[in-house]
Structure formats: C-alpha cells, structure tokens
Simulated assay, not measured.
Amino acid sequence: MNEILKLDNIFQYNDMMGQETLHPLVSVVDFSKCKPMLHSLQRFGFYAVFLKDVKCGDIRYGRNYYDYQEGTLVFLAPGQVVGIVNNGEYFQPKGWALLFHPDLIRGTSLVREMKNYTFFSYESNEALHLSEQERKVILDCFHNIESELQHAIDKHSKTLIVNNIELFLNYCVRFYDRQFITRSHVNKDILTRFENLLNDYFQSEKPQIIGLPSVQYCADSLHLSPNYFGDLIKKETGNSAQEYIQAKLIGVAKDRIFDTSLSVSEIAYSLGFKYPQHFSRLFKQKVGVTPNEYRMRN
C-alpha cells in the first residue's frame, strides 16, 4: 500500500517541491521550475487548485482515479487525498498550483463565501475543463497573486491576496456554468437517469427498507458527488435536487391516493415515511390540502 504523505502547511509543500516560501499561508507554484520527483499520494491541510498543462496518467483523487487531461482544473478542500501511485520513476511536473491555508481567509468576507464554491467538494470526473481563453484568464489570476507575493508583506498584503483569490474563484464559477451549458447533452442524460432512478425506487420495496430517497443516495447511485449533482439539477431544472425528489414523491402519492383500498397511513409507509403525520404535513405544504381532502375532492 502506498503511504499517504500528510502536508499540513504551505511550507511543507513548497519544501517538497524545492520552492521558496514567500508567504506562510499562500503559494503559487510553477511546476516547470520544480525539481524532478517521485509520484506520491498526499493529504493537504489547506485548499489546493491544480492546473495541469500535460496529460500525466491516472491521478488518484479521493477514492477514484482520473485520467488527468491537459487544461484541467481540479479543486481540493483540506483533508482530501490526491496524487499518483508511486511507480519508482522520477518525473518533471508541469502546470501550476494555487495553495492557500484556511487561516489566510479567516476574518475576511471570503470565509463566508467558501460554502458557495461547491466545486471544492466535486469528484475527480467533475473537474473543470478549460478552453484556451479560460486558461489564459486563470493564468493571469495566478500571476497576479504571484506578483503580490513577490511584494514585501505589509498591511495591504492579506486584503489584496484574498481579493485576487476570490476573483479567481468567481471566474471558476463562471467557467463551470459554461461547462454545465456546453455539456447539456450529458446533463440531460443524467436528468433522465435521475428520473428513472426515482421511478424504479418508488416501484420497489426500497422505501420500506431504506426510507425516503436522499440526495446523497441519488448522487451515489448516479456516481456523482452530492454537490455536483445538486448544482447540475439546479441548473437544469431550476429546483434543488431535494425539491425535485419531493415533487416526484408528491406525484407518486397523488396516484396512490386514487386507490381507495389504501389508507393514507399505508400510502405514507409505502413511500418511505416513518410517521404518517410527516407525510400529511409535507403533502399539505406542497399541494395545499391534506391527503384525505385531496382524495375527497377527486
């Protein structure tokens, strides 16, 4: 088994790559200036964004492997594992990395915004694939941060560095939106699979065994991370994944309410509710009347 190298601070990573540490909490790394090294699996204690300029084999990202193509951005949150299994051969890394420690953004507006950059929790196959123009924008952002790091640290340094990081992340949001659009045919396929997944789920005994289908369950079944899955469904339908699931559930419930041989409690249990009153409360919230009232009206 390959040992996982734990890198808790920026200095450790820079030292491993043979780079000077200009700031203890942030670094921009040009891999072409780094020394040849062996592949390894690494766990970071900081945020990391990697831009690879060459195809370099199967990179392990979390629990999965990914064929790392040219012009790809991958985002890592603290605690995630990334790397390539060591084959004993040295290689010259190419590309760029932006690293920043959570302590850098504490007390800034960016710390409150980080939850909105959901791509830090995407899986490897949901990486951001850049156009040539987008790649230039990203490199400009890296160069701007690097230029600020070259400046002597003063009272303005943190604000300017954090602002540039936030600008970079906002560009990534824009480029991901573009990727969702340009991969619309793929997204439509996922939406169809999601719909079929819910249909099969409610036609099976899974609701009685597992309970109500969760976003996590659906994402896992479709081999997507919950954040990417949620973002995709939101962009394709305008509703959150949870809202989509609830809409499907209410649709199935309405069909079953027409079967007068079933009590409302039996319908609730068949849908995965532990308590019938929870079903009645959700139904009234979504439809405007209780299940019994809906049955009487129809």
Rank of each mutant, 00 (worst) to 15 (best):
Q242R: 07
I10D: 02
L73W: 02
H101K: 06
N14K: 06
K274Q: 09
F194N: 01
R297G: 08
H129C: 02
Y90G: 01
F180V: 01
F258R: 11
P102M: 10
Y65L: 10
Y171P: 02
G57E: 00
G230H: 09
D53N: 14
R63K: 13
L25Q: 12
D189S: 14
E195W: 09
V287N: 03
G88S: 01
G18S: 02
Y217Q: 06
D67W: 06
S121I: 02
F119Q: 02
G107K: 07
H156E: 15
D103Y: 14
N9K: 10
E195I: 06
N164K: 13
A219F: 03
Q203E: 15
F142D: 01
P93H: 01
L51E: 03
G88L: 02
L222M: 01
P291Y: 01
M1D: 06
N298M: 14
F194Y: 05
I190E: 00
N227E: 14
L169A: 03
Q133T: 15
L99R: 03
G83R: 00
L262I: 10
L212I: 06
S265A: 12
L38I: 00
V111G: 10
R193A: 02
L197C: 01
G238E: 12
C172Q: 08
P24V: 02
R60A: 06
S214P: 02
L110S: 03
M1G: 11
G88I: 01
A247Y: 12
E266V: 07
Y269F: 07
F75S: 08
K274P: 05
D8Y: 03
N9A: 05
L139W: 02
E243H: 10
N116R: 13
K94G: 11
N9W: 06
K235A: 13
G71M: 04
N292V: 06
K188S: 15
F175T: 06
P78G: 01
L22S: 04
P276C: 00
M114S: 03
F229C: 01
F283H: 00
G45T: 05
C34Q: 05
E148Y: 06
L73H: 06
M17H: 12
L51F: 04
M1V: 05
D140K: 10
L282N: 05
S40M: 12
M16Q: 10
P213K: 00
N116Q: 11
T108I: 07
M37P: 00
S263T: 07
V287W: 05
C141T: 03
K284I: 00
F273Y: 07
F100H: 04
L76T: 10
I84Q: 09
S27W: 07
F229Y: 04
L167V: 05
N64Q: 11
Y122D: 03
A48Y: 14
R193K: 07
Y117S: 00
